[in-house]
Design a protein around this nucleic acid. Structure first.
Lengths: 346, 346
DNA sequence: GCCACGGGCGAGAGCGCTCTCGGATCACGT
DNA sequence: ACGTGATCCGAGAGCGCTCTCGCCCGTGGC
């Protein structure tokens, strides 16, 4: 009960099958050049002994770990209030396990964590990394780049650090924002306000840019900075109502803030969408469906983005192993389209 | 750029410091018995070379991986619609990294995945496992037990498989349910209905039991099975209104279903809480705060539960390494208390 | 001044695997 | 019958580390 039964080794299997270690290895790893008769005998021995290869020993020689790190750098709030993260993880997980890779999750909160994560990634425990939710000026990309670890970013990383070559997957935040605002305009609204996300994240900046693309000459007081939380949405909405009581539409940087805004609007007796139309971003379920009224919002295919990130990384990994590096057609960025989901709020 | 610089080995550090591998190993692993002068020289060499130990080589001999698996067995729905999962992960992650352990995430959806996960766990890649969201009759515990891997379950596992010894952490679902129902009764309600969760999960069963503890002689038509989703909550609510139009309170098995129920009630012109009081379970944010009206619900300390799971597992791991196994005072179950959060819905 | 003792250090084996290389074996052509 | 490849398999080295031994040197007791 207490002792773990000593696991059988290649040697043991070899002995039982009456062959050499090398042959067993060949069979186990599916390389050809073993006569069927022998292979069969080996397979039986494996079966009987319940042999499972020791991964540590294997990667000691192959220098491959068949594992990739997923790094989520998020100081609490956003990721954990929302299924976004979970969805993307799921996409990644699917893709990874389909290629027999393991997923090592690294959650970070503060700066100390970053150092730790940097060390871990540099330590060669994993073959590559998938990195999320970077804030502008995050030191992590720098560390990773120095470690020389193949990496794909989720969301456009901040361009400041000369990380021009970085591969990333993002949704078309700017285009989605434009669609949202145009939709509002199409509804006949003219005083369209925008509650931005935390502007130290590129997604928030890009959405703001999209807003400005369409509302180039808007009253600057119609833009208020939020922080992606419901409470932030409420604060921002109050401020907007205060400064521009005549607004007739709000585009919120995400659904959480939109939900907060909705509450404040109700509180102030503004009817949605009659008096003020509201559009969110993310189509974060179940929130977007459960607000009163249900939220018109911009959807992105989160899970697929996750899958793609994983796929790009794996491709890079194989490429590196195979021959000349990653020049072989790996795109440096993939932008996913967004779609406007019409519900009742706008 | 393409080639990963060959990482320095113990040997290299030893050469540079003019000592033997053994000494470097001693210094790196913090064991004493090395004179300060030498230790210092070694440390400098490590620094200069940027040496990081090769984990694979190390675990090959130590048989320790300093990694634990987190297994989430969930066919889509629940876990991913809710931050529950993320919170718990965060708790686990904190505790694990505090003890220099890595978190290997295994997400499973279907039966094939289970086999794969079973193989992985049996493969000795990790030192232990944290397992979540089991459904009744899940084959996983059986597989894990056979693999002899130290394991802690999140949520009471189904008792059927003779897994009496299983260590688990759960919240007091039954007690929480009792509190919720008593609260409703305290409000003067008498026709209290219950929308259960998916009854193939022990949490749903326990909450139902709690409901019955208080409502022993209730009209059986007041209990309807749901599935933990908003849509399921809506369906169940419709059915309840149909069968028992005179109900004056609803206790939903979780907040998502409560949100669905709220919508149906509104649709039918029932005012909450005036006509019908509603209580949920989980205090799933931001949903619970964003419903109309905000939801009275039963809160559990998710993150702390995660931490504790990790702590129990690590303790077990150390115990096993140390001497005689886990008899040294590890509890076989820890039940967390719940607290009723009063908002506007009841 | 000699021996016993103990602490600090190095030599070397070995963890379980992969992979190269060369030896056996066999079919075939001459 | 013999050489010639091609094919299949085994021997053995070596991946980077830990850990046991035993050597060496310094210290103390007589």
């Amino acid at each position: 009960m207490t002792d773990t039964a000593p696991r059988p080794t290649l040697e043991a299997v070899a002995a039982r099958a009456g062959v050499s270690r090398a042959t067993v290895s060949r069979v186990v790893n599916g390389s050809d050049g073993v006569r069927e008769r022998l292979a069969e005998r080996v397979r039986r021995a494996v079966e009987e002994l319940g042999y499972v290869p020791n991964q540590a020993a294997r990667s000691l020689v192959t220098k491959r770990h068949d594992a990739v790190a997923v790094v989520v750098a998020e100081p609490e709030t956003r990721v954990f209030a929302d299924p976004f993260f979970a969805r993307q993880l799921r996409g990644i997980s699917k893709e990874l396990t389909a290629h027999d890779n393991q997923l090592v999750l690294l959650l970070t909160e503060d700066r100390d964590d970053h150092a730790r994560v940097g060390r871990y990634l540099a330590g060669g425990h994993v073959d590559g990394a998938l990195v999320f939710s970077l804030h502008i000026d995050d030191p992590l990309p720098e560390l990773i780049q120095r470690a020389g670890l193949p990496t794909v970013y989720g969301g456009r990383p901040d361009g400041s650090g000369g990380r021009r070559g970085a591969v990333y997957v993002d949704s078309d935040n700017r285009g989605g924002a434009r669609d949202a605002v145009r939709h509002l305009l199409g509804l006949g609204r003219s005083r369209v306000a925008h509650i931005t996300g935390a502007l130290d994240q590129t997604a928030a900046v890009d959405r703001l840019d999209g807003f400005r693309d369409v509302m180039a000459d808007a009253d600057p007081r119609l833009v208020v900075e939020g922080d992606f939380t419901p409470a932030g949405g409420e604060r921002a909405m109050r401020r907007l109502l205060d400064r521009c009581p005549d607004l007739d539409a709000v585009f919120a940087g995400n659904d959480l803030m939109a939900a907060g805004a909705l509450r404040v609007l109700r509180e102030h007796g503004r009817r949605v969408p009659d008096d003020v139309a509201v559009v969110g971003f993310d189509d974060m379920l179940p929130i977007a469906e459960q607000t009163e009224p249900p939220l018109t919002t911009v959807r992105q295919d989160i899970e697929e983005m996750g899958r793609l990130m994983a796929r790009l990384l794996l491709r890079d990994l194989d490429g590196t192993t195979a021959s000349d590096g990653n020049a072989g057609g790996t795109p440096s960025a993939v932008i996913f389209p967004t779609t406007l989901i019409r519900r009742a709020s706008a």
